[in-house]
Each structure stands twice: as structure tokens, then as C-alpha cells.
Simulated scan of single mutants.
Amino acid sequence: MGRKSTIHRLAPETKSYIEAMLATGAQTLDELIADLQERFPAEARAGGLPSRSALHRYGSKLDRRLAAIKASTEAARMISEHAGDSQDARSEALTALVQTELFEAILNLQEADDPDHDAGERVGMLSAAAKNIATLTRSSVNLKKFQAEVAEAARKKAFAEAAQQAAETAKQQGLSKTGVEALRAAILGAL
């Protein structure tokens, strides 16, 4: 494994500043380097500030992460706007989205030869992902159970309303009380 990026070795304050500046895109890389040299002169003198290429690599990774967060947020917003919530369809869609993202992240982690993560870190990240997947799977199972209960309750309600309507119509048409009860029992028996 390669060594850690110079950005990961910086003081947290410096790293946070770099991340904020890269995220806003307010400066070119050359402007950012000049700004860092002015803002953090002690680190600049010690040769601890990142190079232009290190900033570019880190900025590219940060851009991918921000794009993924933005896409997930947009997808969640669209799901929220377009999905009814009687069966918690939004949660189902979000669970599927998270499952997809976790699966892709695990594949990327397995395929990546990222010098920023040693083998121990990779194992720890996979372990954390596995724990989150287990939680997500339990959530998915509970969601399916909830959806089945909602569907069953809706089905029972529909049959009860149909039985009531049929009984009222049959009664108006002159069906005997025994006939109305038999009709109602036949409809409700379909449950």
C-alpha cells in the first residue's frame, strides 16, 4: 500500500479549510495553493502543504462524494414527491437506494487499490458496511411486514365496505333479512 495523502496528514483545521474551498470551487488550484501558503505559513515553511496534484486528486474524490450525496438527496426528494405513503413506498425506495449504494461501495472498495487505506482500514470499512447492511436488511424485512399488514387491512376494509353496500342494496331490492345476512356472510367469507 502507498503512503497516506499529504492532505490526510494535515492538521484538522487545515484539512477542513481545504475541503471547504474545494467544495465551493471558488478558487483555482493555483489560487488555493497561494491562499494556503498565506493562511498557513508555518506548514508552508515546513513543506507540509499539499502539492497541486495532491489537491487535484483529493478534489476529484471530494467531487465524487459530493455528487453522490447530491444525487441521493435528489432521488429521495423525487421519491418523496411522487410516492404515496400509505404503504411507506418512500421508505422502500430509499432502502433500495441505500442497498444499491452500499453494494456499489463494497465493489469499489474491493476493486480499489487506494493508497489512502491500508488493509486494516479496508477490513474495518467492510466490517462497518456489513453491520450497516444487516441493519438495512432488518429494516427491509420490517418494511415488507408493515406493507403486508397495510395491504391486508385495506383488503379487509374493502370487503367490509362491499358487504355493507351489497347488504343495503339487497335490502332495498326486497331481499329478506336472512338473505341479506347470507349475502353479507358470503362476501366477508372471501376474506
Rank of each mutant, 00 (worst) to 15 (best):
M1F: 00
R3E: 02
S5M: 00
T6K: 01
H8G: 09
R9Y: 00
P12W: 01
P12R: 14
T14L: 12
S16I: 03
S16G: 05
I18C: 04
M21K: 14
M21R: 09
A23V: 08
T24G: 15
T24Y: 13
T24S: 08
Q27F: 07
D30T: 07
D30Q: 12
L36G: 00
F40N: 09
F40W: 00
A44D: 03
A44N: 03
A46M: 07
A46F: 04
G47C: 10
G47N: 03
P50Y: 09
S51C: 00
R52L: 11
S53D: 04
A54C: 09
R57W: 06
R57A: 03
Y58W: 06
G59K: 12
S60H: 01
D63Y: 15
D63F: 15
R65V: 02
A67R: 04
A68H: 01
I69Y: 06
K70M: 11
S72W: 10
T73W: 01
E74M: 07
E74F: 02
A76G: 05
I79Q: 07
S80T: 15
A83R: 00
A83N: 12
S91T: 15
A93C: 09
L97S: 13
E101D: 11
E101C: 05
F103L: 15
A105D: 12
L107G: 09
A112S: 12
D113I: 10
D116S: 06
D116M: 15
D118V: 05
A119M: 11
A119N: 04
E121M: 05
V123A: 01
G124N: 14
M125N: 06
A128F: 02
K131G: 05
K131L: 14
N132R: 15
I133H: 04
A134N: 15
T137G: 13
R138D: 14
S139F: 11
S140C: 06
N142Y: 13
E149G: 00
E152Y: 09
E152R: 09
A153H: 12
A154T: 07
A154S: 12
A154V: 05
K157P: 08
A158C: 09
A158N: 07
Q165H: 15
A166I: 03
A166M: 15
A167L: 02
A170I: 08
Q173F: 10
K177G: 14
K177P: 12
A185K: 05
A186K: 00
I187L: 01
G189N: 07
A190D: 14
L191N: 08
